[in-house]
Design a binder for these strands. Structure first.
Lengths: 326, 326
DNA sequence: CTGAAAGCGCTTACAG
DNA sequence: CTGAAAGCGCTTACAG
């Protein structure tokens, strides 16, 4: 178990600088290359990452800032990131910020201090503080799920997803519509998804009213309950699957039959939407794939290669039971 | 941004060894202590963790091995661990093994190589390879969710949870029972939960049949579908909430009304069980709290303090709509 | 292609 | 209480 680079060098009968060169792809003759290789194999030598990092001032860490761990989207995304990073011999570091913006900023600085090579930032809202931190630390950052002029961004196609959903429910004959969205501070979910939806309705003779609620099922349940006391739409289009789940619960408690009396749709494509009854019409986003791509991209950034300023992921409309024909 | 310990020492007019001593709580006079403190504050100096780790041969990393990221239990547990670790100035490292045992073992060795101070191991099955790895690396390990003689363990009270569930459904008048469990390779979920349940039924005149399925909702759905073709229990007791969700789906597809014609129960206490209709009777485990406690315990182990070989968490029976009185 | 030396930023005996 | 020196395990110019 006493394996430093010096040990290996001694055993192989070369200088440690030669071993180092071998390790880092420097010029080493065939003969010595083979000798070193053999010794390393035999002794299962693995370089000490700290010593390496100390010199290189760089690590094989990629920091990932996530607002939460307990959501379908987060989990899938993280799994994708982790998988790809592992393959490229990077180690994912996670900082869960519990949706606290201060902690997001802190997390960025913390990662910088830990000398991560790159950062993947998942955040619902981007403020000047994020941008300031991003500039100060001088480490590549990839923004995932939101778009920003000053950061490389990888996004889901929220706008067209919203548009597709709008067109679909129009086709299904709905004209009396409620949209249950979230705060506009969240550009992707709160603004773009809604904008696309709005666009699809342009020039149609629909009655459409917009409401806002929180991201939690319980919040959505409460808002939906009030909404349904006020108006009687034929459909409630929800900005996320979680919200849709809350709406379904509220409807159930009011003995409103879905989809007979009320149709419901979501966005996300969570597993559970296929298991519940009725199954939920929704938009499937490719979270895991996005995670993988994000890993790819941040590595490119780390290696100072070029990537597009904005990359947009696909989506898929899942037509299921929760929308009735009108 | 040029702040090494030497810089600080120079500015404060002392030797860097003195600054180091200050940092590590060594003996430093009041006067110099204050001078150093001031300089550090002013320059926002933060020691380079790699240099520290290189000397100390130890890090502030705690590795966590998880079989998956996308489950309620995992997410909650990880959030608990992370929260507590952060508070104690440790950084959580996650290795997702995608339920692949080989990768679990690899992960343990990888963590050792990265010089983590301790490891929290979440695994459905413990084999000799785990134990061997645990011994070889010579780093404290805490086993979470399973019990093992040779490892410090933190477990949920699966046995008594099973027992409590059994007693409850007996009270509700059920006598014609099916138990839908999982592989016995998973001691906690597959064996102990079932054993406790069995025990509660001892001496009663129940008809009880045992079935086995996978952890996924879709697997459970399929198994339940077959089961319901064979027998007609008044209740299906499921080893996890996910399985219960699959059973509910299968029943729905067969137009079997829950709970009127068939009662269902789960274990876990996932959020969704409260939102679906009917709400699911289940056992709530305290995953997040377990994560926090695990973090506490691994830190103690790292600091070479004593902890109990086995710690058992509480649980709570949630009586809801999915169980009908017979 | 190869080796000796310096240095990355810290800590730890050892003197004083 | 304080400082000078050695060393943690590696990498990187610089000679040769």
């Amino acid at each position: 178990m006493i394996k430093t680079i010096s040990d290996i060098a001694a055993i192989a009968g070369v200088a440690k600088s030669t071993v180092s060169r071998y390790l880092n792809g420097g010029s080493v003759s065939q003969a010595t290359r083979q000798r070193i290789e053999k010794v390393i194999k035999e002794h299962q030598y693995v370089p000490n990452t700290f010593a390496q990092s100390l010199k290189a001032r760089k690590t094989n860490f990629i920091g990932t800032v996530v607002p939460r761990l307990d959501s379908f989207a987060s989990s899938q995304t993280l799994m994708g990131i982790d998988e790809q990073l592992r393959e490229a011999n990077y180690q994912m570091l996670i900082s869960n910020t519990s949706q606290d913006m201060k902690r997001e900023i802190e997390a960025i600085y913390d990662f910088a201090r830990q000398k991560v090579s790159g950062i993947i930032l998942l955040a619902a809202q981007i403020h000047d503080d994020h941008l300031k931190a991003a500039e100060e630390i001088n480490i590549p950052i990839l923004l995932l799920g939101q778009e920003n002029d000053r950061l490389h961004s990888l996004i889901h196609d929220d706008y067209h997803a919203g548009y597709a959903m709008g067109k679909h429910i129009l086709e299904m004959g709905h004209r009396n519509i409620a949209y249950l969205g979230v705060t506009e501070k969240d550009i992707a979910v709160g603004v773009r998804r809604k904008e696309g939806f709005k666009k699809s309705l342009e020039g149609t003779a629909c009655s459409i009213s917009y409401y806002e609620t929180g991201f939690k099922m319980t919040d959505a349940m409460k808002t939906a309950s009030e909404l349904l006391d006020e108006i009687s739409p034929s459909i409630i289009v929800c900005a996320t699957d979680n919200i849709a789940l809350g709406v379904m619960k509220a409807a159930y408690l009011k003995e409103i039959a879905i989809p007979k009396q009320l149709s419901v749709t979501g966005f996300g494509g969570y597993d559970i939407t296929e298991i519940i009854h009725p199954t939920l019409t929704t938009i499937r986003f490719f979270y895991k794939e996005a995670g993988k791509l994000a890993a790819h991209q941040i590595i490119k950034l780390v290696q100072e290669e070029q990537i597009d300023p904005v990359t947009t992921m696909e989506f898929e409309l899942l037509m299921r039971e929760s929308v009735d024909k009108r």
